[in-house]
């Protein structure tokens, strides 16, 4: 079979209009599969949402944001109002973590916006996807790894500096003088293996989520470049 001899066959037989509607006919399959064109069938598609990988990532990120909002706002209000406002420090901690999450959301959202350029040349679009996806996963790994030590350090700072310290001092009374297990050094020492463990777990999880996708894109790019 010579490819050049098949050009005409391909062009004529593969035109949906030139084909009948015989059973098993690829053109008939096309219509059966809901791929028929024409104004009536194309118009509804324009209102539909994308189901591509980037759109799915964006949707997951929005769900993540929604979960944070739903979980944090009632908690922040609860600790501000309840216990006569003596645990306002916890609200402050949650607000700070929430602010860090906003920065995380913004960065991820920006990366997703620049991840694809469907109208660009196929090679440059692939290169852009590989580069952005690598940056995305690096940031994901960094952000998800530092969240626990960051929270621990913030908690320590808030309680140590006694921010929002209630006037009567009852809340922190039991921690003063500090028992052996409340020693900052001990907590710091425990944070190190925990952070390292988190790093490896997150690296495994992120690789599970995006590893194959990145590898496949890299393979495609390599194939396009090789001579």
């Amino acid at each position: 079979m010579e490819l050049d001899n098949l050009k005409v066959v391909w062009q004529v037989l593969e035109d949906p209009l030139s084909r009948g509607r015989r059973p098993g006919d690829p053109a008939a399959e096309v219509h059966a599969a809901g791929m028929s064109s024409g104004r009536e069938s194309l118009l509804p598609l324009l209102q539909q949402r994308s189901r591509g990988p980037v759109a799915r990532m964006r949707r997951n990120l929005r769900i993540e944001l929604l979960c944070i909002i739903v979980a944090y706002i009632p908690l922040i209000l609860f600790y501000l109002v309840e216990f006569q406002g003596r645990l306002r420090a916890i609200s402050l901690l949650l607000i700070l973590v929430g602010a860090l999450f906003c920065a995380y959301y913004y960065r991820k959202s920006r990366l997703l916006t620049t991840m694809q350029c469907p109208a660009c040349q196929v090679r440059s679009n692939l290169a852009r996807q590989v580069g952005t996806l690598k940056r995305y996963t690096r940031f994901y790994l960094l952000a998800s790894t530092i969240v626990i030590p960051a929270m621990a350090i913030l908690t320590y700072a808030i309680f140590h500096l006694r921010l929002f310290y209630p006037g009567d001092g009852i809340v922190y009374h039991r921690l003063s003088p500090a028992p052996w297990w409340a020693s900052p050094t001990l907590w710091l020492l425990m944070l190190v293996p925990l952070t390292v463990g988190m790093y490896y777990f997150n690296a495994w999880y992120i690789n599970r989520l995006y590893g194959r996708h990145i590898k496949k894109l890299q393979e495609l790019l390599r194939e396009m470049d090789e001579e």
Partner: peptide, 23 residues
């Protein structure tokens, strides 16, 4: 149609890809 036919093996996949391309 040709792109969908070349890159997908099942009707469902072809339909999905066609929609995604139009979007």
């Amino acid at each position: 149609h040709k792109v969908c036919r070349l890159y997908c093996f099942t009707d469902t996949d072809r339909q999905d890809l066609f929609q995604e391309i139009v979007i």
